[in-house]
Design a protein around this nucleic acid. Sequence first.
DNA 1: TCTGGGGTCCTAGGACCC
DNA 2: TCTGGGGTCCTAGGACCC
Length: 429
Amino acid sequence: MSLEKLSKTSQQIALVDCNNFYASCERIFKPKWAKRPLGILSNNDGCIVARSNELKEAGIPMGAPYFQIRDQLDEMKAVIVSSNYTLYGNMSARVMNTLGQFTPEIEVYSIDEAWLDLSGFCHLSLDAYAREIAATTLRHTGIPVSVGIGPTRVLAKIANRVCKKRKIPGRVFNLGSAESLDHVLETIEVQDIWGIGRRLSKKLRASGIHTAKNLRDADPDSMRRQYSVVMQRIIMELRGVPCIGVEEIQPKKQIISSRSFGERVVELEPLLQSVAMHSTKAAEKLRSQNSVCGAIQVSIRTGRHNPDEEYYSQSALAKFAMPTADTRKLINAAGQVLRRIYRKGPRYAKAGVMLLNISQDNAMQGHLFQERDSEKAIALMNTVDQLNRLYGRRAVFFASEGCTQQWAMRRQQCTPAYTTRWDDLPVVR
DNA sequence: TCTGGGGTCCTAGGACCC
DNA sequence: TCTGGGGTCCTAGGACCC
């Protein structure tokens, strides 16, 4: 497809992506870290989940286990911190809020990314407008962002990638004003296309498809037969034909709460506590989207990486006769399920629950013999949610969650919640 | 020994994303 | 010793029904 044709396509999608988001958040409140290599650890301080440019350039891979690269990081004099999701969540809200001032057509895609539909803006002013978006976001929030623009989401993603790779001044790259679309697509390897992961890229390469250009020029129908409808859509999007729509924010179809333990757990009692806590957290999320669930699944497992230790992983499910959002019913059911799958012996590393068969509670119908959540139960849950919102998480909680939670996750090097706790407000001298 | 055909619904598992 | 958490979508295959 020619560039000319591309630029005339009516839809213009921008993908705004925060640069090294977690690292950028940390640096705002620690200016002296601006020049130092900076890495952020996953929950439980297990592995590296975010890296500043210095770490990326040093070849530290995403997801690297911390204990394996610790010496290397020390040698680089890198700053390594636990992840501070309270801070990132709050900074994310500020960024999204700023972006929302530029267009109502915004879809928040992840904590550090948003799609903007800029179709209304004429081609000439588009680049300038996007540069203004990037500059304003930096000024208002301190977070640098990159903007990629294209006629489809897959192409906007590619544009965003090019923008970051080439470190484009102004932090905007519009495929519609690129030198040559073919040339750009030739530089994109197939595994770097949105929707093509490790498995698919391996298969594609084996059949001679190495770049985005190769994939675009493959036959969509035969590729659909060979792979799936997902592959066909990606090809069409590479050709500038929108196939992946702008979905409004839908209620979640499943809600998960799970976490690794700070240390291994053997006994049933602490497992019961953690499963009760996860039920509570999941139920809060469920109620916050005004839903009820029809089933709860509980899972437990040992560590996955020790070949000398038997791997045990088990999950099971309880269904409710009537959908519910009552934490007490969820905790109760989860406890029963856990007793079914618990074996004494294994050193458990992780436990969690998943809420399934989620529906909107206003769509619920009564049943002759089974009661839906009573008015009283609903009122109680609302009160619990309100108290916790007002006075902080776990202001009130269920005794079955345990008071001390010895198994809670490790976060040994967490920075303060600068923007959301009075005690942690930064002090200016 | 031989034992239909087609539709629908549900679930498990695979693959991907950030 | 130590290896994240939370989602979505698609497909294949089994159960069940007529």
